[in-house]
Simulated assay, not measured.
Amino acid sequence: MSELREQVMAHAGDRMEMDNSVGPSATAATLGLVERPLVDVAQLDSASGVILARTEGVVTAAQCDLNDHLNMAEYLKIIDSLSGLTLDEIGVGEAYVASQRKSFFASRVAIRYLLEMTCGVSYVAEARLLAFDRRRLLTYFCLYNGENGQLVAKALLEWAHVDLSSRRALDLPASLANTFDRASHLFVERLPKITL
């Protein structure tokens, strides 16, 4: 087992989410996903996972809020645009959806903001494959200040493999799972649940 997988699984252990007052997310329930042990986004570092995609940009005035820093919705837009590149890079983008009638739906996301990004500051965003199980991918995003290289924000995004006809989660095809495993060696029996 890789050091990264050992860290993720050691941190996750057998703990289950303790606060169920809100219950599982509607998306997870709708897709037929089960609750899993926790992994804390704060425990991950910028060297975790295998880099799949990278993008760069500059924070514009239109992206800033009344506090003159990058609006939280804009962090999600950066992650979302990078997600498309990530899915294309691992062979499950538009061509996969069109030919297989299967796709990946975002089922959970957690973002941790570490530093401000103000208007005019350049950024670099990277997406990494952190782990996968028989039905899900766990991707990890890092947003860096492009001028000084400081880690500004990090996020975990869990994807469920979905049949577009039934709208239900289903196992990855063996060929796809083998491709992911050969590229990353990050297969785990059950993905840990993400939390802040």
Rank of each mutant, 00 (worst) to 15 (best):
E116N: 09
T60D: 12
A95Q: 14
V152F: 02
R108M: 05
L76K: 01
K154F: 06
R15E: 05
D40C: 10
E17L: 15
E147A: 13
A177L: 08
V22E: 12
G149S: 06
S99Y: 01
G120E: 02
I51V: 15
A47G: 12
A106R: 04
R15Q: 06
K102E: 11
V124S: 00
V121K: 09
E56P: 01
S175I: 10
R168V: 07
L129W: 11
Y75E: 03
E147T: 11
F104Q: 00
F141R: 00
L85C: 10
G120A: 02
A73R: 12
Y113T: 08
A28P: 07
H185L: 09
E158C: 15
V8M: 03
D133H: 12
L76N: 06
L186K: 03
L87W: 05
I51K: 15
L176S: 03
R15Y: 08
D40E: 15
R182S: 13
L186V: 02
R128M: 00
I78K: 00
M1R: 10
M117H: 01
H185D: 15
K193M: 13
K77A: 01
E6G: 11
I79W: 04
S25M: 04
V59G: 08
R36E: 09
A12R: 04
G13R: 03
R128C: 02
A183P: 05
S103H: 00
Q43G: 15
H161P: 02
E56D: 14
L31E: 11
Y75I: 01
E6F: 07
M1Y: 09
Q43E: 13
L186W: 02
E147M: 08
E158W: 02
P173Y: 11
L87M: 05
S46F: 04
G23I: 10
V162Y: 04
M18F: 13
A127T: 02
L196G: 06
P192L: 00
Q7V: 11
D40A: 09
A26C: 05
H69I: 10
L66P: 00
A183Y: 11
Y75T: 01
L31R: 11
